[in-house]
Design a protein around this nucleic acid. Sequence first.
DNA 1: CCGCTATAGTTGAGAGCGCAAGCAGTTTAC
DNA 2: GTAAACTGCTTGCGCTCTCAACTATAGCGG
Lengths: 156, 156
Amino acid sequence: MIRTQVQAPPQAWAALLRAHAVTTRALSAQLVADHGLTINDLEALLRLSHAEDQRMRRVDLADALLLTASGVTRLLDGLESAGLVERATCASDRRVVYAVLTEAGRAKLQEASESHLAEVQALFEERFDEDELAQLGELLGRLHGGDAATAEECTP
Amino acid sequence: MIRTQVQAPPQAWAALLRAHAVTTRALSAQLVADHGLTINDLEALLRLSHAEDQRMRRVDLADALLLTASGVTRLLDGLESAGLVERATCASDRRVVYAVLTEAGRAKLQEASESHLAEVQALFEERFDEDELAQLGELLGRLHGGDAATAEECTP
DNA sequence: CCGCTATAGTTGAGAGCGCAAGCAGTTTAC
DNA sequence: GTAAACTGCTTGCGCTCTCAACTATAGCGG
């Protein structure tokens, strides 16, 4: 019998997969249970809150969240029906639909962020010191080519 | 109006999410297109190939792949109907069902590993030198508590 | 002005996976 | 020896997300 020996892929790749699975599972479950938001929901609210006028085009949001256009549509469907986000059209380009953070959305974000941030920090700062944290961020950051996403503005 | 300022979560966490999304997307799509296997399919075959007698209990496989029991059931459903894996029962404990790598499974693994490994390596070794790679692996490895999964044996 | 191509967004089908519930079979406690 | 608790596995349902197909603008070259 031929012993076909196949090596394991680089340890870093396996570690990345595992790290993502483990941390996401832990953090996401908590977030859903406590506030009824997924990680991406929260990320979306967060992005919107930082955006000018608290609104973004759906395409830009998709870019930011690493989702496809359809993914964003569905995600916003949820946030919209929960009243956390509203749609707004753009006068100068009738194709675009903005997602706008509502007052309720801001409140929800505020509330959910607190506990979520605490958990994220617990998870990370318990295991890494400041230098390591920075280094980890830097290394992981290299994995996607230097794509600087500049959000488009719809000048009215 | 109250400007509710919410900080972004630690950069490392965001970077981890993005890194996973980006790399997985790239590698997985290729893998599916070329060989009809998902990352987890491949990982499962790989684990089995390294296991004693090329077989594992489903529970242990779930553990190794960071899936739930039901996830493994479905995953193996696929591999089974593709003929890459077979089931075998355990004489001493009739609850357990083994997943056994078939000859076809070994061949498939061999074939798929080659291109997949090449891609993984391209992705990583293009961006990191050896030290960084090791460090990345070490850091990410810390994210799941020291759970040493020892695969159970079913002594016949 | 009329196609042509590119872009923003939506929708239907389907994959992958977790959760909760359920069923065998095994172990423990009395 | 039997009831209670536990374990391995499967199944129904729901969620998120992608892909492919489609609509509606926008902007260009002739």
